[in-house]
Design a protein around this nucleic acid. Structure first.
Lengths: 205, 205
DNA sequence: AGCTTTGTTAACCAAATGGTTAATTAATTG
DNA sequence: CAATTAATTAACCATTTGGTTAACAAAGCT
């Protein structure tokens, strides 16, 4: 038996291939043979390591859903002031998504098509504690009269909307603006600062 | 031969069923038999009226992509001031999506999975002229020193992000906040005003 | 009415797909 | 080293799936 810690073990090769295929085609569109081919292994190996398509998919989905909510607790616990926390979250979050730009659409879509997945997977694994901390921090800042009164849920929606949506709408944006991948990346780089200032501009007293 | 203008003609029944199934399952996940069953017609009829799965899908996709960009030209041409145009766009757009909340995710996802669809379908049909007019209007408002300088593309992204993203992320939002459909609808109703003011607050001088 | 076009059905078909099996090889262990 | 266990392969299988066909029914037309 090969060393499991070896990165090119069969299991690892399967996971690498499965990530590619599931993200590209989704659960319904993915083909087991396609995954096997890309992993350069026999199709039976897929069922040997992961019982079936759904099980394999669940592993990948969990992984991706996890990446969608990075661990920003330390950031929230830091002694940055409220506005710098916003700046930091926006910038970090856009950076994280830029590393895996396909994840938001993948997760949102599969949660939508496969509603039971959400509950089964997400809560048992990790609920994003930093969202709660962000909410508390907003409430506190409102009470301290540092920012204008706003429903924290709406503000949080606004933040993540402006960070994540452009990646979800990328094909449409490219079509409408005619920009190419390089320029898109530059724009998202700009947004790290732009979106944060846009938000702060709006809520500061 | 039945009257084609009759709404419950076979062709119309197929389209109604196809909308449901494609939106629920996507192109890859949709089954021709499922569409036939829901339309209560023989499966061969699908191929009689629409050559094959892809052709039928294309009709539905085009329809949905069209709904994603309503005709707001008149709104842009109106004599409302810039801020009222923003208010009007945000409110109308959220209202439109509330009527068809599944459309943004459906269109974005299928454009992503089926990249050739975008060009083939979207441009030949209708490019949203109001987006261009909105961009011009933003540029003008910046020049007139009515609003702070901002790249129009980014501002437009911000507007549509905050309008559309919550509908795309609905399952996640429900999971994280614990709210139900009724409350979600209420929140989106609030956003018609909240998002517009959030934007105006941010850009006004 | 008789002929043609349009609409509809049930049965059928080939290819694709998820999954299994039995035999084989490579490690592991006592 | 022999025996056991884990890993791998090729061939196979049952079902599903998109699509077709041939026969039949209903309109439309002259």
């Amino acid at each position: 038996m090969r060393d499991k810690r070896n990165d090119s073990s069969t299991e690892e090769k399967i996971l690498i291939a499965a990530r590619l295929v599931f993200i590209e085609k989704g659960l319904a569109g993915a083909r087991m043979q396609d995954i096997a081919d890309r992993a350069e292994i026999n199709k039976a190996m897929l069922h040997y390591y992961f019982k079936n398509k759904e099980m394999l998919f669940e592993v990948i989905f969990r992984e991706m859903a996890g990446k969608l909510f990075p661990h920003f607790e330390r950031l929230m616990d830091s002694d940055l002031n409220f506005f710098d926390k916003i700046r930091s979250i926006v910038s970090s979050y856009i950076e994280v998504i830029m590393q895996n730009p396909y994840i938001p659409l993948f997760v949102m879509n599969e949660m939508n098509k496969n509603p039971e997945m959400g509950i089964k997977n997400f809560f048992e694994a990790q609920k994003p504690g930093f969202v709660r901390k962000l909410r508390d921090s907003i409430e506190e800042s409102v009470k301290e009269d540092l920012i204008q009164p706003i429903n924290p849920i709406h503000l949080i929606m606004n933040i993540f909307s402006m960070c994540a949506f452009p990646f979800i709408a990328k094909p449409m944006i490219k079509l409408l603006t005619g920009i190419e991948d390089d320029d898109f990346k530059n724009m998202m780089e700009q947004r790290k600062i732009l979106v944060a200032e846009f938000i702060i501009n709006s809520i500061r007293k």
